Computed example of a mutant assay.
Amino acid sequence: MSMIADLEPVKCTGLLVDNYVGHLAYIADNEPHVVPSTYFFDEDRKCILCFASNGHRINALRKSNKVSFQVDSIESFRHWQSVQVHGTFEELTGDFAKQCLKRFADGVQRTIDHKNAERPHFLSHFSGKLQEAEMPVVYRIAVTKIIGKSVEDFT
């Protein structure tokens, strides 16, 4: 028998810390959009760090800053966990954006090393000093709410 249950806050945080790919949901032109996104959950600052190039997503987030971010761990149909974060998009600039981009890259690398996964090629771009022209748009999602659900098969 399977049962859906609320995920305890510490387990929600653990799922966010232990992963680096989630799905960002946002509104553009009165339409919902969901895109996969590499992220780092900054547990100390209670935010999700991300980056993107200027384009559809960033333009939409600048106009409507309320977002959701979902991270899942799915072992099977009867054994999964899912966390949804509600928050606010905040574009970062200048030296603070560079610091957060480095924090993002280091955090994602630590998560990947912990999981013994392959290093994404884009991380090497962040190891040196970036010029302003090369900088992607760095942003954070300031967390306002975290909810989680899980299913376990008890048969």
Rank of each mutant, 00 (worst) to 15 (best):
M1V: 06
S2C: 13
M3V: 08
I4P: 01
I4L: 15
A5E: 14
A5R: 12
D6W: 02
D6P: 04
L7I: 03
E8H: 08
E8G: 02
P9V: 05
V10E: 15
K11V: 03
G14H: 12
L15W: 04
L16N: 10
D18A: 15
D18C: 09
N19Y: 05
N19T: 07
H23M: 11
A25L: 07
I27H: 06
A28G: 13
N30Q: 11
N30A: 12
P32R: 07
V34K: 02
T38K: 08
T38D: 13
Y39I: 04
F41S: 09
F41C: 07
D42M: 03
D42A: 03
E43D: 13
E43R: 12
D44R: 07
D44Q: 11
F51K: 07
S53R: 09
N54Y: 06
N54K: 10
H56F: 07
R57D: 02
R57Y: 00
N59A: 12
R62M: 12
R62Y: 07
S64A: 12
K66S: 14
K66L: 11
S68M: 05
F69P: 05
V71L: 06
D72P: 02
S73Q: 14
I74A: 03
I74M: 09
I74S: 03
E75L: 14
F77S: 15
F77T: 12
R78W: 06
Q81M: 14
S82P: 13
V83N: 08
H86W: 07
T88I: 13
T88F: 00
F89H: 10
F89K: 08
G94M: 06
G94C: 06
F96C: 10
A97L: 09
K98W: 03
K98M: 11
C100M: 14
K102V: 08
K102R: 15
A105N: 11
A105W: 05
D106A: 13
D106W: 01
G107Q: 08
V108K: 11
I112F: 05
A117K: 12
F126H: 09
F126V: 08
S127M: 09
L130D: 04
E132F: 00
E132A: 14
E134N: 14
V137Y: 00
V137P: 01
R140W: 03
A142W: 00
A142E: 08
T144F: 02
T144P: 00
T144M: 01
I146M: 15
S150P: 02
S150E: 15
S150A: 14
V151H: 06
E152F: 11
E152I: 10
D153F: 15
F154L: 12
T155S: 15
